[in-house]
Simulated assay, not measured.
Amino acid sequence: MKFTVDPGAIEQESMAIIEKNVPSLALLPAREQSIVKRIIHTTGDFNIAPLVKIHPQAVERGLAAIHRGCTIFTDVNMVLAGLNNKKLTEFGVQAICRIADPSVAAEATRTGQTRAMVTMRQAGALQGDIVVIGNAPTALFTLCAMIEQGEADPALVIGTPVGFVGASESKELLVSLNKVPYITVQGTRGGSTIAASIVNALLYM
Score class of each variant (00 low, 15 high):
4 T>Q: 13
4 T>S: 11
5 V>A: 10
5 V>W: 01
9 A>C: 01
17 I>E: 13
25 L>G: 11
26 A>M: 13
26 A>L: 12
27 L>E: 15
30 A>T: 12
32 E>C: 09
35 I>F: 04
36 V>S: 08
39 I>S: 04
42 T>E: 14
42 T>V: 08
45 D>V: 02
46 F>I: 04
46 F>C: 02
50 P>V: 06
51 L>I: 00
52 V>N: 05
54 I>E: 09
55 H>K: 03
58 A>M: 08
60 E>F: 02
61 R>N: 14
62 G>I: 03
64 A>T: 11
64 A>W: 00
65 A>T: 05
71 T>N: 11
77 N>A: 10
78 M>T: 15
78 M>S: 14
82 G>N: 09
86 K>F: 11
86 K>W: 05
86 K>L: 13
90 E>H: 15
93 V>I: 13
95 A>H: 10
97 C>E: 06
97 C>A: 12
100 A>E: 14
101 D>F: 11
103 S>K: 14
103 S>H: 09
104 V>C: 08
107 E>P: 00
108 A>F: 04
109 T>D: 14
109 T>S: 14
110 R>M: 06
113 Q>N: 14
116 A>E: 07
124 G>T: 08
125 A>L: 00
126 L>N: 07
127 Q>M: 04
130 I>E: 03
131 V>F: 02
134 G>P: 06
134 G>V: 11
135 N>G: 02
136 A>T: 08
139 A>W: 06
140 L>I: 10
141 F>N: 07
143 L>I: 09
143 L>V: 08
144 C>V: 07
145 A>L: 09
146 M>V: 00
146 M>C: 11
148 E>A: 15
148 E>N: 13
153 D>T: 13
153 D>A: 14
154 P>N: 05
156 L>S: 03
157 V>T: 05
159 G>C: 06
160 T>M: 12
162 V>C: 06
165 V>T: 09
165 V>E: 03
166 G>S: 01
171 K>A: 03
176 S>F: 00
178 N>P: 00
179 K>R: 15
184 T>G: 07
184 T>C: 07
186 Q>N: 12
187 G>M: 03
189 R>N: 11
190 G>D: 05
191 G>L: 10
191 G>M: 11
191 G>S: 10
194 I>T: 09
195 A>P: 05
196 A>M: 06
203 L>A: 09
